[in-house]
Design a protein around this nucleic acid. Structure first.
Length: 470
RNA sequence: GCGCCCUUCGUCUAUCGGUUAGGACGCUAGGUUUUCAACCUGGAAAGAGGGGUUCGACUCCCCUAGGGCGUACCA
């Protein structure tokens, strides 16, 4: 197994649902590995299950990958379109005696499993048609094609994550290559496609580990070189149980809608099962430079929303306001059911630097920005209302007048005005700022008060303050 | 049932036979502060259990327990 072949990885989802978090991580690791080695990253849609494959799922997968920035180096390959080639391989195996036709009925197979289980043996196909003469075939029963797996010895799976694992061939059965309708099964298709696509590294979920021992039989039978295998541990729900719809088994689009940034998502997913010393905040560039299979852990990881939330906050703060704005506008529009108008947009642009420091996701940010678009008179939250005591309203009256008299409306002039007012009236800044905040935002929390005034503009600010003295 | 894999703070993890077992999230005490965040300082918090091997085990081996995956004419 010498690795002078060019690195080619692939992500091979079956389009039976959205791109979930585990699939996204598998795609990310394949992408990173290819990018790290200057190799090729391919996408293959495994749509051989015609019953369950849908166009909607294909779209969701494509959109999810685009959102995460995982670009493939070639158009997606649709597995079903290659069914003739898969069948061709099965017939080749048939011709060389490495596969055979099996005429078992469903009932016979079930009975077989029953007895095996009762005897404490693996409930697998017992090879009853393996050496039977085709002339014994019952009429009218379309056969499946099964591969001949060695009946003794071991199959070694050499895995970059799990190490070398030995499977007794007696545990492996003569699995089906071609269904009775002549279509190829997944087992056959993956192997043929990976071989034809020159995939050098098969990086996939841990749930395929046992399958690898089976798939290896096809490689052996065809005399094809094995790719390097790396099986990634699963991602579990926060409670340690398998991901279900209740917790993390959401499509990546759901994370986007919850206001998470793709950069944060990538960073989070990367750290789930992979580590590079003590590094936590890892840019995509660094990830590409550092990624390797030896950093992949062996144990399943639980999905932790709190950490994702924290990471997302880090990325929100790091991001330039102008880069955050388009996504934020979309989020607000989605939340409000209408686009942000020009005036609102101007306020938002001014307030964004202060706003983005205080939110951990876009939805939160949108909510914190809502006061910018609120109609007068503002609805005052209970806690904020408590700040608007009669004395506070008195002060606000003076403040409104002072602010109204400002000739120039900049962060500096605003700050000077308020500090002067507070100083002249023997108040601490907080005594002026808190009632002001309540009047301007209807809330007790907001960006810095000077920033709020600046974003709202002079007329609106003064009007909102005066609203409290009616 | 059978086979395979996994097991360090609550969570994600570092450690590759010798460390006061480190970091991050979360939690918590305090500081800073115009609110909230952010930020700074400190704290609590872990090697599943039992046997070996070794001068010495989180690290290597075995057993047990727990969890996961597979065992389809699904992928």
């Amino acid at each position: 197994m010498t690795e002078t072949r060019p690195v080619i990885t692939r992500f091979a989802p079956s389009p039976t649902g959205f791109l979930h978090i585990g699939g996204a991580r598998t795609a990310l690791f394949n992408w990173l590995f290819a990018r790290h080695h200057g190799g090729t990253f391919l996408l293959r849609i495994e749509d051989t299950d015609r019953e369950r494959s849908t166009q909607a799922a294909i779209d969701a997968i494509l959109e999810g990958m685009a959102w995460l920035g995982l670009d493939a180096d070639a158009p997606p390959i649709f597995q079903f379109a290659r069914r003739d080639r898969h069948a061709e391989v099965a017939h080749q195996l048939l011709a060389t005696g490495k596969a055979y036709r099996c005429y078992c009925t469903q009932q016979e197979l079930e009975a077989m499993r029953e007895t095996a289980r009762a005897e404490g043996k693996p409930p697998i196909y017992n090879g009853m048609w393996r050496d039977r003469d085709p002339s014994e075939a019952p009429g009218g029963v379309p056969p499946v094609v099964r591969i001949k797996v060695p009946q003794s010895g071991d199959t070694l799976v050499n895995d970059q994550v799990l190490g070398t694992v030995s499977f007794s061939n007696t545990q492996l059965d003569d699995f089906i290559l071609l269904r009775s309708d002549g279509t190829p099964t997944y087992m056959l298709s993956v192997v043929v496609d990976d071989f034809d696509m020159d995939v050098s590294h098969v990086i996939r979920g841990d749930d395929h580990f046992t399958n690898t021992a089976r798939q290896l039989q096809i490689y052996h039978a065809m005399g094809w070189p094995e790719p390097v295998f790396a099986h990634l541990p699963m991602i579990l729900g926060p409670d340690g149980a398998k991901l279900s719809k209740r917790h993390g088994a959401l499509g990546v689009d759901a994370y986007r809608d919850m206001g998470y940034l793709p950069d944060a998502m990538r960073n989070y997913l990367l750290r789930l099962g992979w580590a590079h010393g003590d590094d936590e905040i890892i840019s995509t560039e660094q990830a590409v430079a550092w990624f390797d299979l030896t950093g992949v852990g062996k144990s399943a990881a639980r999905f932790d929303f709190a950490k994702l939330e924290n990471l997302n906050g880090v990325y929100m703060r790091e991001k330039a306001p102008q880069d955050l704005l388009p996504e934020l506008l979309k989020t607000i529009a989605r939340l409000n059911g209408k686009e942000v108008d020009a005036a609102g947009r101007a306020r938002l642009e001014t307030a964004l630097p202060g706003l983005k420091e205080r939110a951990t996701n876009l939805v939160d940010l949108a909510k914190n920005a809502a006061f910018l678009f609120a109609q007068r008179p503002l609805v005052i939250e209970e806690a904020a209302a408590k700040l608007l005591t009669p004395e506070a309203r008195q002060r606000l009256k003076g403040l409104a007048a002072a602010l109204q008299s400002l000739q120039i409306w900049t962060i500096e002039t605003i700050e000077a005005c308020i500090r002067d007012f507070a100083g002249a009236n023997g108040m601490k800044l907080g005594q002026a700022a808190q009632p002001l905040r309540a009047a301007l935002t209807g809330s007790t929390t907001s960006p810095g008060i000077f920033d709020v005034l600046l974003a709202l503009g002079q007329p609106e600010s003064v009007a909102r303050i005066q609203d409290q003295n009616l």
